[in-house]
Each structure stands twice: as C-alpha cells, then as structure tokens.
Nucleic acid binder design. Sequence first.
RNA 1: CGGGCUGUGGCGCAGUGGCUAGCGCGCUCGGUUCGGGACCGAGAGGUCGGGAGUUCAAGUCUCCCCAGCCCGACCA
Length: 515
Amino acid sequence: MSKRATRTAISPTRDENYPEWYQQVVRAADLAELSPVRGCMVIKPWGYALWENMQRALDGMFKATGHSNAYFPLFIPLRYLEREAEHVEGFAKECAVVTHHRLEPGAGGGRGAAGEVRGAGGVVPAGKLDEPYVVRPTSETIIGEMYSKWVQSYRDLPILINQWANVVRWELRPRLFLRTAEFLWQEGHTVHATAGEAHEETLRMLGVYADFAENHMAMPVVRGEKSAGERFPGAENTYTIEAMMQDRKALQAGTSHFLGQNFARACNITFSDRDGALAHAWTTSWGVSTRLVGGLIMTHGDDDGVVLPPRLAPQQAVILPIYKDETQRNAVLDFCRGLERRLRDARYADEPLRVAIDDRDLRGGEKNWYHVKRGVPLRIEVGPRDLAAGTVSVARRDQPPRQRAAVAHEQLVADAPALLAAMQDGMLQRARRFLADHSTRVSSLAALEEYFRDDASAGFATAPVSAAAEQDPAYRELLGRLKLSLRCIPDAADTGTCIFGGEAGAPAAVIARAY
RNA sequence: CGGGCUGUGGCGCAGUGGCUAGCGCGCUCGGUUCGGGACCGAGAGGUCGGGAGUUCAAGUCUCCCCAGCCCGACCA
C-alpha cells in the first residue's frame, strides 16, 4: 500500500473507522467468519482456542467456588417459557421455534414455488408438534423445572450448577462475537434456602467475572447493578461488569442475576425448611459468552491486529527459524527444537509455556506478520547469526512490530515467564489508564450533554440518576438522541441530586454509549 | 417489520448494447532473491444472483423473483 514506515497490518486503522477495523482484525487474525446461515458465525481454530482458554480458566474458578457442571436440553417447551410473565415478554421477539419433527417429499418435486432448487429431494417440514419447542435463549425455565423435582428439603440446598452451552437469540444484525443469532456461553443456575444466601452467591459470581476479566483478560471493568429498565427479564436485581472498548463505548461483559423467588414460583421450586414450613426457594443465574472474545479484541487490539494477553494466548511464543539453504536449515531447526523444549519446561501462571515452531515454507516477513496479526505475545527469531552469537532475536507483541532485542538464549529461557507476566501486567495497566482517562463525573444535564457532544473524547460519565428518571420523557429523549444508556450503578451509597428530575439521594449511575 | 443501495473468478473491484469479459490481491508451477510483508516469468480459476422479455446482438435495457449490505426499534 503506502510507505513502509507508516503501513499498518490492519486497514483501516482504529482512528479511521473503528467498526471496520474490528471486522478486519477478526478476519486478519483468522478468529471467525460469517457463515451461510444468516446471523451465525463460524468460530475458527485460533478463535476457538482462545475461547477454550477462557472456558478452562472460568471453569476452574466455578469449581473452586463449589459449582458442578451439568447439561440441560436445547429445546424448551413453549409453556415453560410462559410461566414467568416478564421473562417470556423479554425474549418473545427473538425466539427460534421448532414446530415440526420430520421432513417429507414436497409437492414441487425438487423445485420450490419460485423454481429454486430445494434440498436434495425437495423436502418440506412435516409431523407438526402438538406443542412447539423454543430453542433456548437462556435456560432458567427448563432448569427450574428440573430443580422443582430435585428440591424438597432444606437439606437439598444449595444447588450450585453451571452449564456450558449454545443459545439462540434471533438477532439479524450480526457482529462477529459481539452479536450473533447463536452464541456460546456458560450459564450458572443456583438454588438457595434464603434470600441472603442467594444474594451473596449473585455477588460472589460477579466477583469471579470481574476477577477473570481483570486478571486473565487484562480488561478492567466497572462493577455495578443494572437499573430497573436494564434488568434481566424476571430478575429482582441484575449485576454487571462493564468494560470500556477503545472507541470508549461500553461492553456488557458479564451479568449475574438475583432472581428472588420469581422463578421458584414460576417453576414451583419449594422446600420444607427447618421448621417444617413449605417455602419457595431463592435462585440466581449468571453468564458470560463468546462476546468476551470481542471484548478482548477491542480492549487490546492495535492497528496491526489482535494483541493477546499471555494468560489467554493459545500460543505464548512462536519460534521463527531463519535459513537460506538445507545446511543452515538443519542447524537452525535443530537449535529451535532444543529451545522449544527448554521453553516448554518453563512455567507461567502455573502452566507450561505454550510454544510452537513455525517452520512453514513461507517468506520470513510474511510469516512474521502472520503472528503479529494473530497477537502471539512473543516472536522468537532464530537464524545462523544467532547460532553463532548464542542469541535469539525477541519481539514483543506489545511493542512496535519491527522492534526486537537480541537476547542470549539461556537468558530468554530464564526470563520468558517474567517477560510474559510483565506483558500481562502492562496490558492491564494500560487499559486501566485508558478507562480512567475517559471517565468523568457530571452533576447536571448540561454537563452530560456537553461531555458527549464530542464523540472523539466521550467515555463513561457518572451522574446521579433517580429510579423515577427512567420513566421521564425528557430522560428518554436525551438518552435516545445521544445514543446513551445507563450502564450500571456501581455503588448505591454514592448519591446526589438527580440530573433529570432533581430528586435528592439519587444513586450515581455510569452513562455511556454501548454495544 | 419500514427507507436506501448492491449482486461479475476465493477476496476487492472495472466493464459508452457490438469481436475471445478484464484488473489488483490471493492461489499453483519455474527461476532469481533471502534477518523479511520481495521480484521476474508461466498457469489455474467466471454458465456476469435466478427467471422471463426487448434486440441481428444483453454483463450492459425492461419486468418479476431471490440474496446480501447500510440506516431506524431490540439485544449476552
């Protein structure tokens, strides 16, 4: 394209066109692509490996907090969903519904009405179901149904179960990882004997999410409670972690819900307490999804592609052999294999280093950029000169792509874990600074409007907003016009005068544009 | 579900009704290069979204259909 010195691997750059940059990064890093099925994506090996690393870490944290995995059906009888009024209303507009269970030869004999070729035999749905099934948009009702059978005594409680699954929410505005009709997630569903215990669980899992986001993804988050208008359909309280992307928009990265007794009533989850009295149980649910992959990209990615935090990178280091002829190749590769072994014996974050040699028959430069775009933390070049000098040439993904340092190879092996740790920490610090630099407090409507007037600087604004404001037409008009939403209330005790209605004691809410 | 736009090799595009439909990237092969997103040469790959029509002649004009994209309401 243009001059070498200014050329970036991703075009356009973040500044030029952020949404397009995002799409190009996902493509360049080979994370995922859209499928022939509208609204659904194919997660490719590199993207899926990232998700697997997230899963592994989260799964360990769930187990460590006493949860077990189980699996519930993909199909939910329609009448289950109807049991909780707010719940069904909340999801009604985005449900895939299964109405038939068989295919039969169609009347057109292989051609549709418009003459289009149909599937192999020209088949049509048949065997209409008496009651349709909904493809789960979430599993509260089907899991609740089972819990109602499992729970009889206070001695059966708590139940602490998590499920790794796919869910479908019929979205027709796909954005890879951020919003697709089908996505992968985990959903925790717990049952407790008391409100206090359930509430404690809700906040505990919010804490797990925040911990994961910050310490594994290096993605700082704002924790808080959702306002009534943003609550999960059927929940008493919804808590969220909100992250700031590099376009300063908020991404809801995880939610944890205190469901009160709403679903226990809807699903008839009752138990005899210590006094022999029959009571409805208290439930929670909490989830994070493959959306986190999108959050990771938009938190750390740069104009050369993805930048992966070492703890989640499918490969933490890649060794790139450099040679001209067969003699050199043998010597260099031999050395690389030894280096690979020694690096794998090193440990970072309680795991062996994930190292690979890339010996594909590609041009060196092309190969190097391939790994830059995919975000591999360390690129280690090994050529004949290195062999002679006892060094390797090390490039860090958190530094400019052409910058590299000659390091004695024994020193690299010794320092690699610390190097990865420093990168992980540096990424978190940088992201924290970004969040802090683009957050502000405002105490008037005028100040709020002023803050969001310049799209290039606005981020998170915190302002007192009363519960009543969400019903206020002026509130709706302003937030609608500025495309803002209430992200969360970080601390209910932090209050002031509502910038909309002027009520005293209104909790401070984070207001931002959001994904 | 309302408004606007677009369908031409894998991707991105060009193509005043007229000869064998081109270009860039990518791909394959050969060579020259080699601490680097190389260069030269040769090659593979398209029933121009589908159907009907107008015409001596349609990628190009008309009609219908289909698909996708963008903008509005919802969303992990």
